[in-house]
Amino acid sequence: MRIWSLHPQHLDRQALIACWRETLLAQAVIAGRTRGYRNHPQLERFVATPQPIVYVGAYLAGLAVEADARGYRFDRTRIDELPADLAAFDGAMEVTTGQLALEWRHLLAKLDARSPDVAAVQRERVGDGVPGVHPMFRVVEGPVASWERAV
């Protein structure tokens, strides 16, 4: 399961669709509709929020906005709780600089393997700077997240 902290604009088609599906799975786990993946480390940051289902819904909404921009149709009726004021979730969760750097390297390696043209565009877009983050995250200084298992 990979629920990216990176802005969905950086994801290729495969990663965006996989992130949508995997976050729907995360939503089902948090809602208690499935017994698998209950202890998956990627869920920790959502479970730690005051309203995990609402936070997952806000995350899914951010993915759906990017899908719309690309002409895809993600079924928003699959979101259990869509926040009434999505803007209220802008920057609602933290992501560390270390986590962001790890995810960026991980994504670029995946893109190099399956979508080299997209990888080149993303490298050009970001250059030596910091990639954008999903709208519900704000960047803070720090190491790779304690829940991360990709290291």
Rank of each mutant, 00 (worst) to 15 (best):
T34V: 14
R21Y: 07
Y37T: 01
G71T: 09
D90Q: 10
W20L: 08
V56S: 12
R33M: 05
R38C: 05
V54K: 12
F74N: 12
A18C: 05
C19E: 11
E81H: 08
L25E: 00
I17A: 09
V29S: 13
N39Y: 00
F46K: 01
R76Y: 00
A69E: 09
E22S: 11
T49W: 05
T97Y: 00
L82H: 10
L24E: 13
M93L: 15
A84I: 08
Q51I: 04
R33C: 00
G98T: 11
R33W: 01
I79P: 13
G98K: 10
T77G: 09
R21H: 11
L63M: 03
R38E: 05
Y59C: 03
A88V: 02
V65G: 04
R45V: 10
A61R: 15
A92I: 10
L86N: 02
G36P: 03
A48N: 08
R78M: 13
L16P: 00
Y37L: 07
V56H: 08
E81S: 11
A69Q: 15
P52M: 09
A18R: 09
V56P: 12
R76D: 01
G91W: 07
R76N: 06
E44T: 11
Q42H: 12
A28P: 01
L24A: 11
Y72F: 15
D85K: 13
F74W: 09
P83Y: 09
I30S: 00
P83V: 08
D90M: 06
A67F: 00
C19P: 01
V54D: 14
R21V: 11
R76S: 00
Y72E: 11
P52D: 14
A84L: 14
G36A: 13
D80Y: 05
L16I: 06
G71E: 01
L16H: 02
R45P: 06
Y37P: 03
D68T: 13
E44G: 10
I53L: 15
L16K: 04
T77D: 15
W20F: 06
W20C: 08
R33T: 02
Q51T: 12
E81Q: 13
R70P: 06
E22C: 04
P50Q: 14
E22Y: 05
G91T: 11
A84P: 11
